[in-house]
């Protein structure tokens, strides 16, 4: 058990480092930067996201075929994977993070691009949103995840398990968090494109299911922001006065992913 805690602790630290890695400085987009971003987009992204960014590229159908998720539609300007509150827009860092890390299972990471190029693609992708008014908005408030105050202990994991059931996570993710809901009413769930989506897509025991990242900070972020366009809601309000419970839940979820359920 002690070894398990050490392993989880290492994951938490690495997760923090990964988060910090994407906080790179971007330059103000110029026509040249956007043009460079378009070149890269046309070489790499067009096959899934399409020439206009509608998520209708020539290879987009095959990723999940008749099920969610499909490639993101950049013209809508809504992104599942954000660091901002539900209903709020995304930050440039959110886009940068997805380009860098990919979406496990569905989008490969483009970490091989120089950092500068990834920012150029961010700049170009933003232009595909027809009503892109981000520059007129106030600076977006992101969740300050920072350093967690809740230590990783057996008690924390147990409390997380109780939170899991208290907030009825099992309704979609199942009693064992494997998406194995017996009567499976959740089969009727759909995403914002009308594509059927099942909790097995959110199988918490499969690291590839952590589409928004498998580090502790990523899971915490998913709980707080929700995944817009999917049935996964934001629990920010629920955890407003009980942020420690969110971290307990994160610990519980991480404990499931090491190959041995509770």
């Amino acid at each position: 058990m002690l070894l398990r805690f050490h392993f989880l602790t290492v994951i938490l630290v690495i997760g923090g480092l990964l988060v910090s890695n994407v906080h790179a400085i971007q330059t103000e987009p110029t026509p040249e930067i956007i043009a460079r971003g378009k070149i890269l987009y046309d070489r790499s992204c067009i096959f899934c996201h399409g020439v206009q960014g509608k998520g209708d590229g020539p290879a987009a159908f095959f990723g999940a075929s008749y099920w969610a998720p499909r490639a993101s539609d950049f013209t809508v300007g809504q992104y599942k994977f954000r660091s901002t509150a539900s209903g709020k827009s995304h930050t440039d860092e959110d886009l940068f993070r997805i380009i860098t890390n990919g979406v496990p299972g569905y989008m490969p990471p483009f970490v091989g691009w120089p950092e500068e190029d990834r920012w150029h693609v961010v700049s170009y992708v933003k232009t595909l949103h027809s009503t892109n008014s981000r520059h007129n908005e106030k600076p977006l408030e992101t969740f300050q995840i920072g350093t967690q105050n809740v230590p990783l202990t057996v008690e924390s994991i147990e409390q997380g398990r109780q939170v899991y059931f208290k907030f009825e996570c099992d309704a979609c993710h199942g009693h064992n968090a494997r998406g194995d809901v017996p009567d499976f009413e959740a089969q009727d769930l759909k995403d914002n494109l009308g594509m059927p989506i099942r909790p097995t897509d959110l199988d918490l025991t499969n690291p590839y299911s952590f589409k928004n990242g498998a580090a502790a900070h990523d899971i915490f972020g998913t709980l707080m922001t929700g995944l817009i366009g999917t049935p996964m809601p934001s629990y920010a309000d629920a955890f407003a006065q009980h942020e420690d419970d969110a971290w307990h839940l994160v610990h519980y979820i991480l404990s499931l992913s090491q190959g041995s359920g509770p």
């Binding site: 999940a64 099920w67 990919g102 496990p104 299972g105 569905y106 097995t200 199988d203």
Partner: peptide, 17 residues
Amino acid sequence: PPEAQAIPAYARKYKVN
């Protein structure tokens, strides 16, 4: 539904279906 799964070498390497 299809499950995200890494299979042969390239899929495993890039962690994609």
